[in-house]
């Protein structure tokens, strides 16, 4: 019951944020966005025709009415039709989102799991050569641009070694999926690993320095036991936060680059094409939906906090 009330309060707390996010995307994309009047008119239009098209597009409405219409579009998922292909935006998203999820999921999970593993390794040997090697490699990994990694891996695995396809997405069963997903996964793991390892190492080092860990050691608990019970469980909050907040970042930024380079028909490719061709309905939908997703993640994250740390007071507004 209490958790339900907490959840409801969190949901209510997300409303101002949602309004803000939609307002920003509305102002940038629609209000100051490109004027489509002239595309719909014939040559030498009369003033009357211009006025008619403008009212058809809603340009003669006041700001708040247009913002209200935009909110309604978002809520009902009615984004209209793509400027470049004429396809319904919702149909495009339905087709492309599953591809993106299938493409990014392995790399995302591996990046987090390997990051935690390397972070644990470094934190356990803090100050030793293993720690120095891991943190050194992490800094190197952080310094390489995602774009450079993608190009280099495509070159290495696709052209030089020729082991994997580096273009297209011809997936129909598990072997073909693994065949196509390997190089993108390697690239995204490589890029995520540097940042993740450093972050998790810092978190775990702090956890390991705590008194209860020392006490557990003094009582002769095995390293595995200590790591699992005393360190990892206590570090769960930052780990969960990090994981949750990486999702929108990976889905959008990761898919944008990977899909446009590998020619994979996912939501990132669609977004890339929309950016380069100025396809407003698609961009509007993607920006609106990812922002809403992010606010949703914020709320879920707060609820997970409660789950992992029952001491968190139910009155605290972690949305701040």
């Amino acid at each position: 019951m209490e958790i339900l009330k907490y959840t409801l309060r969190k949901l209510a707390g997300g409303i101002p944020l949602l309004l803000g996010v939609t307002l920003v995307s509305f102002v940038l994309m629609v209000y100051f966005g490109p004027d489509k009047t002239w595309e719909l008119l014939s040559k030498n239009p009369t003033a009357e025709e211009i006025a008619q098209v403008r009212s058809q597009l809603g340009y003669d409405q006041p700001f708040w009415v247009r913002y209200g219409n935009y909110l309604r579009e978002l809520a009902t998922l009615e984004f209209g039709y793509s400027d470049s292909t004429g396809e319904r935006v919702t149909t495009i998203l339905q087709r492309t989102v599953p591809v993106t999820l299938a493409l990014l999921a392995p790399g995302f999970v591996l990046g987090i799991v390997l990051g935690i593993a390397l972070g644990l390794l470094a934190a356990w040997h803090r100050g030793g050569w293993i720690d120095r090697a891991v943190t050194g490699l992490a800094v190197v990994g952080m310094s390489v641009s995602f774009l450079v990694v993608i190009i280099a891996f495509q070159l290495l695995f696709g052209v030089v070694l020729g082991w994997f396809p580096v273009r297209g997405w011809n997936v129909h069963d598990l072997p073909s999926y693994l065949h196509y997903v390997t190089v993108p996964t390697l690239a995204s793991v490589f890029v995520a690993l540097g940042y993740n390892t450093r972050f998790f190492r810092a978190v775990l080092v702090e956890e390991m320095a705590r008194d209860h860990v020392r006490t557990a050691r003094a009582f002769g608990a095995s390293p595995v036991e200590i790591l699992r019970k005393n360190v990892l469980m206590n570090a769960m909050i930052p780990i969960v936060t990090r994981t949750m907040f990486s999702i929108p970042l990976v889905v959008i930024s990761g898919s944008l680059l990977i899909e446009s380079y590998f020619g994979i028909p996912g939501v990132g490719k669609v977004t890339y094409d929309a950016i380069t061709s100025g396809d407003q309905p698609v961009l509007k939908a993607v920006i609106g939906l990812t922002a809403v997703m992010f606010v949703g993640i914020l709320i879920v994250n707060d609820i997970l906090y409660k789950f992992f740390d029952p001491r968190i007071s139910l009155g605290r507004t972690a949305l701040q």
Partner: peptide
């Protein structure tokens, strides 16, 4: 805090695209 929350919620590359759009 509200402004910060709003700006953090919009994916960066899309935000740039939107601003480039608005600033033509």
């Amino acid at each position: 805090l509200w402004l910060k929350g709003v700006l953090d919620s919009i994916p960066f590359y899309l935000f740039v695209a939107a601003i480039a759009f608005a600033l033509d």
